[in-house]
Design a protein around this nucleic acid. Sequence first.
RNA 1: GCCGGGAUGGCGGAAUUGGUAGACGCAGUGGACUCAAAAUCCACCGGUGGUGACACCAUGGGGGUUCAAGUCCCCCUCCCGGUACCA
Length: 816
Amino acid sequence: MTIAYHPDIVEKAARERWQASGCFEVGEDPAREKFYCLTMFPYPSGKLHMGHVRVFTISDVIARYQRMQGRHVLQPMGWDAFGMPAENAAIQRGIPPAQWTYRNIDDMREQLRSLGYAYDWSREITTCRPEYYRWEQWLFTRMFAKGLVYRKNAIVNWDPVDQTVLANEQVIDGRGWRSDAPVERREIPQWFMKITAYADELLAELDSMPGWPESVKTMQRNWIGRSEGVELSFDIDGDGAPLTVYTTRPDTLFGVTYMAVAAEHPLATEAAARDPDIAAFIEACKQTGAAEATLETMEKKGMPLGISAVHPLTGREVPLWVANFVLMSYGTGAVMAVPGHDARDWDFATQHGLPIVQVIAPADGSEIDVTAEVYEEKGLLVNSGEYDGMDFDAAFDAIADHFEQTGRGRRTVNYRLRDWGVSRQRYWGTPIPIVYCDDCGAVPVPEEQLPVVLPEDVEFTGVGSPLRSMPQFYETRCPACDGEARRETDTFDTFVESSWYFARYACPDASGAMLDERAAYWMPVDQYTGGVEHAILHLLYSRFFQRVMRDEGLTQASEPFTNLLTQGMVLKDGAKMSKAKGNTVDPGELIDRYGADTVRLFMMFAAPPEQALEWSDEGVQGAYRFLKRFWHAVQTHVEAGEVGELDAASLGEAGQALRRKTHQTIAKISDDIGRRHAFNTAIAAAMELLNAVNRFEDGSRAGRAVVREALETVVLMLSPIVPHVCDALWAALGHEGAIVDEPWPEVDAAALEQDMIELVVQVNGRLRGRVTTATDATSETIVEQALADPNVQRFIGGKPVRKTIVVPGRLVNLVV
RNA sequence: GCCGGGAUGGCGGAAUUGGUAGACGCAGUGGACUCAAAAUCCACCGGUGGUGACACCAUGGGGGUUCAAGUCCCCCUCCCGGUACCA
């Protein structure tokens, strides 16, 4: 009687064994090759969701696989614990954010344990703890000293009813999510980090990061958006100061028919003082959210300011407009408009009846009509005076030279990337360590006074930050002059915590420094896994912080993550699983019913990791069914008794075939997991091998030896994916040591050898037959055999064969 | 709007470097076992025609390159992610 598969018993035993041996808790071992495997840490929202299970399982499979490859593997876990949901929960349920967060962490840690991840729990990090964020505050003061942070006004979404700043997410169709009042753009002073100081390095290094997906690198390049252009100034009629604009297309300068400035531009403000209609328009521009998607998709509107600029080359006057699509935060807040050769300018000119002139002609001499359709390609200059006939490069240089020589402009490199605004007018975050003094200004909190501790026991009403009504928090003395002073009540963007946590896992208990020498051993992260939604912000900020820490002498590496895997979302009924849509599946319930291995197996089998995964209850049952078959196959094999020595030389044809399949599968799965991260096809290959074992009928001692090799191979290779059941099956196969300490199986090249091979025969590229030939057959022999096939002859139909193509090991194509 | 990604049977997906489209699994159909059901096992399983061997059609839509295209190029549609205060 075989023992039945009881996942609850098997999984509990395996986890107890791992815990007792402490096999996943690692110190630093310079003699061994390290492998730092990291998952983007979760926000403790309350319960583990399927998206978490997916990303953690992917990472765990890689960690366990690398361990079997002999590497010294670190896989830590922690909590991105600050953030808005805790404040929302506090408003809705009257629980202080800290209490809500710590409770969630405890719940989620238990759920994570039930999934059997190979974590080093001794390194757990929680970002809302003062012992963590004090180093973030410390680094900020270091950056302050180096001039890498500064304060300036920036635009926020303002809810005029709730009297509070709104996140973009809280603005729904231009209205506050709670008050339903139309939001306003408002300028307030905020702290910025100079990420642009590293823009060139962040961009250049992308070229030498082969371990990152091209798509992510492309997105980051576009986000940084380095452009080479010219800043040039237009005189304003009357005697105002000249208006400076930035353009990447100085070759189109003669096509300027109007200029446009942002609503916040000083020239617009001046005009508004004269003209109430303009004032009203600017006011209307401010009645909209600050998100880029909102600004770029809204209808393009504008008004003439009633003043003109003087074209610096032609001397002609061009009208000056204020327009809602010009961004104050990019370039100079003003643009020269070339409607003939810029799509946005073209739309605006068409709408407002502004002239459109052609100044670029296609290099191939074809005719275009820019009044009918915009032409944005580079070409040859026309209607451009002395520059006529020049191409883009020649015109760029000639015009840039002219402006530099006359002192009216200069070549400039511009970035789309903006400095990182880190101030948040929220409570549940890291306090920004600044004190404001009437005499000394903004003074950073000295190191010995850190951390500035966030009070956790607060009354949370949702109207403004509680810190602003806590004099015991904000009343302080100036660190410079000891006079009366006021603490900053804004907190950091939560992206700040997640921009350096990966390094802190190396030394989570270091009390005297942000990082110590252990970081030199573990950094950089070898494999980083997380959602593609973080492709730009989190990953760019982390690359920035890594460099700031490097320049502070805390770590050597410039890049924090050597290899990056961005996994897709978990969908159900075609939509992302979310509480709002009510289509969530609770991992806990499934683990109770089928066990963690079934959930892990389904997650890894249902789709490749980068792709969106469609949830399927039936698919989970299929995974469970496979594990039962797997279990049964090993148990029946073990019960059949003793197994002989494997004698590869004397095997029959069927035995040889099964051995070949076993070793082909080792090669396939090693490549699938190790190189391609194609866990779904790795599992499919394991299933195929198990199917082959089940079909294999030789019950002799020699036959059972081949079966044993196949089964041990499958158990070893599936152990990163379904570690609990493999732990039990490895023991069932008579091994005393734990499977987590076993090395990955190796391919026996001799087992792969084959005398005969089947080739496909095509006629004119279409499949017409198959031939079996010797593996080393010559092209002539293969073609001869192919021509002997009657169906092939039928399609040749007596016509002469014009060409034969032989693809070794695959096919032969006869062209007639 | 802009940037990135995606679309293959009834469903999830496979096809790794341009070389047999549909591996593996799910669902379904038929059968075995059973008093019965569940579980398990076996067989079939893209569409059309054909008893069949086979043939034709088929990888979101349209065009192109090639002996050969799901894969490369051009154009288009729809869906997803990001868009700087969601994490």
